[in-house]
Design a protein around this nucleic acid. Sequence first.
DNA 1: ATCACGGTAATTAATCTAGTTACAGGAAGT
DNA 2: ACTTCCTGTAACTAGATTAATTACCGTGAT
Lengths: 146, 146
Amino acid sequence: MRVSTRFSDSIHLLAFIKIYAGAHLTSDLIASSIETSPVVVRRLMGKLRHAGLITTTPGTAQPILAKPLNEISLLTVFYAVEGDKSLFAVDPKTNPDCIVGGNIQTVLQQYYQDAQTAAEARLAKTSLQDIVDNLLVEQAKKDAIH
Amino acid sequence: MRVSTRFSDSIHLLAFIKIYAGAHLTSDLIASSIETSPVVVRRLMGKLRHAGLITTTPGTAQPILAKPLNEISLLTVFYAVEGDKSLFAVDPKTNPDCIVGGNIQTVLQQYYQDAQTAAEARLAKTSLQDIVDNLLVEQAKKDAIH
DNA sequence: ATCACGGTAATTAATCTAGTTACAGGAAGT
DNA sequence: ACTTCCTGTAACTAGATTAATTACCGTGAT
């Protein structure tokens, strides 16, 4: 199953808006940082807007963060762009006339949910502000070398 | 970002071998429980064999569990069939000449790893014997009703 | 009015999964 | 030996998902 980069790109996008708040933030400029197309950026912004994380005005650049970044967790972003999609997939079509095939979904579902909840709890602990702070630290490390 | 049903099907397969140990365990029979094709079953068995979870003899039915099921965790099965594939995908191609694009992979990687480790820790806590026990309980519930 | 944008739909290309077909070879009964 | 029932794999196909692209409409500022 192919892995989506929407989640990573959305975090990228939000961090970019924060860090380059002074620039003329067009979808074109943001796309050049993510190295994707402006349409992809606008699609992501659409999902983030629906989730109430940013506000935008049609026809005008400059998306605005709707909340302070320390109030937005990675989990919030994940839900915004990926919905409540599950990390582990149950095979929905198995033989119901079999002890295994007839009950496996019920049994696996709970363990999968536990694992996913554990992962989500970690994502909930990290805010976008943490990401921005880390980005600046990493950049400072690079600058120190050169 | 979603795990294929190989993981679920492999758990199914191993549980089936245990529960129906008395039957003539051909890949055809197992496939009829998973509702897939015998070839898919044999492919999965190949991975499980390489991981040392079962032994098989070419030309002969009856795969054999290489260890007691309480010594095989869900995480072991996950690694056997999915490798160390990550649940969250970093976007590898971003603009290096940008504070965000140039450092985002490094930063996200650690948080993603934390989240994945948390999920894996949960998977490691559950053994295939737990799954089998639960399957039998669920089946008993059904039988009690009818 | 023009120009620079965002919003969104439709299409395409690449990739992954699972199902299928095909076939070589092992094991066991006759 | 021969036949039959299997496993082990490779090759191919169909479907689903993702991201990139093309295209077009509408908005807002100058």
